[in-house]
Design a protein around this nucleic acid. Structure first.
Lengths: 191, 191
DNA sequence: GCGATTTTTTGACATATATCAAAAAAATCA
DNA sequence: TGATTTTTTTGATATATGTCAAAAAATCGC
């Protein structure tokens, strides 16, 4: 369990022993039942969670409708970024799509790691750089591809999303109505 | 000139004297003529530029068409993020929309700052966090607003873009055809 | 300053995608 | 397992926005 997190972190920075020891000291194991929330609109998100098992859906409510904007799977951090990094009320919800096991880290604990270890600071920077690149790709896809192309691209680049997430959430994520996505899928089936 | 950069960096981290001294040592002043390129598709971006004066347009070419995905103005860093951070060929162009004055920092120099000063590492992290939050906002706007709403929102949140950037670039940035944006504007004029 | 580009506007028409409604299928759970 | 809820599919129709074309306006280069 901790090895899994360790492996993830190591892909960014090879942690020295003292810095690595903090992993077991600061992260605590937790479970979230399918359907439960890791972040709620209006509440300050006090923890970041490393997803050991399961997957989550990020969404916000706009005109009484849920708009999904992200999914997270095993081996990634889950938190309401703006809320957590600025300690302000969240504008989004994060919901467990499957039963989830996570390793949770409190905001203050993370900051003490940042303060104490240059390597943790670097880890934070590299993870944010990585996240930014992912966001840029997603933006490009939304900006340049048709509904069908976006679905096909997702099928290729993130098959887990299509395999494990209900279609209505996927359609929202792709900014396509459920009906249109259903039609797109049947077209592709025929091909 | 250096004070301007210093002020920007200070808004993220109050640099100690030794770390602050590096600013004048590592950043070099350069000018880019209107129309010239700060990054080109296919070339590895070797520098990040802090924009002292002027503005830039980020775009990539898709089906022989330019798709604008970002603008930068005074007091922000300009670089092809993926290319610079991973030192791989850029997929995008960055073009000066006005004559620009920048302070440029080489990739290797930045990394030596990261290695030597925990404060610079933190600076990098905080700037990336800030960037990520901006990207998230942009994604939300593209996902939830109509063409007209996106334009109005831009008018309010980033009037500089509308004041200083040719309309065809703005429309591309908003994922609206030039014709539709023109119509949206005339509608708003009347109101 | 003036001709030549480039950008913006306007109009007619095309189309991708949304919406509404209802049936079919799948998932949930008591 | 069967009943109930949720999700997905299918059909008919509506609409926002794109495309093509040409005029009007603005900008650029010499």
């Amino acid at each position: 369990m901790y090895e899994q997190l360790q492996g993830y972190l190591n892909s960014f920075v090879k942690l020295d022993e003292d810095a690595a020891l903090e992993i077991e000291r600061k992260f605590v194991k937790r479970n979230f039942r399918k359907g439960s929330f890791l972040a709620v609109e209006g509440e300050v998100t006090k923890e970041a969670h490393f997803l050991i098992k399961g997957c989550c859906r990020f969404y916000h409510v706009k005109n009484e409708k849920a708009v999904t904007h992200w999914f997270s799977f095993e081996n990634s951090f889950v938190t309401s970024l703006r809320s957590f990094t600025t300690q302000t009320p969240s504008v989004e919800y994060i919901q467990a799509i499957e039963n989830c096991t996570v390793l949770s880290l409190k905001y203050d604990e993370l900051n003490s790691l940042y303060a104490k270890y240059q390597q943790w600071e670097r880890l934070g920077r590299l993870i944010m750089e990585d996240f930014s690149r992912q966001m840029l790709d997603r933006l490009t896809a939304l900006q340049t591809l048709t509904a069908k192309q976006r679905y096909i691209m997702l099928l290729q680049s993130e098959p887990r999303i299509i395999q494990r997430i209900p279609l209505n959430h996927v359609s929202s994520y792709l900014s396509i109505s459920g009906e249109t996505l259903s039609r797109v899928r049947s077209e592709i089936r025929i091909l």
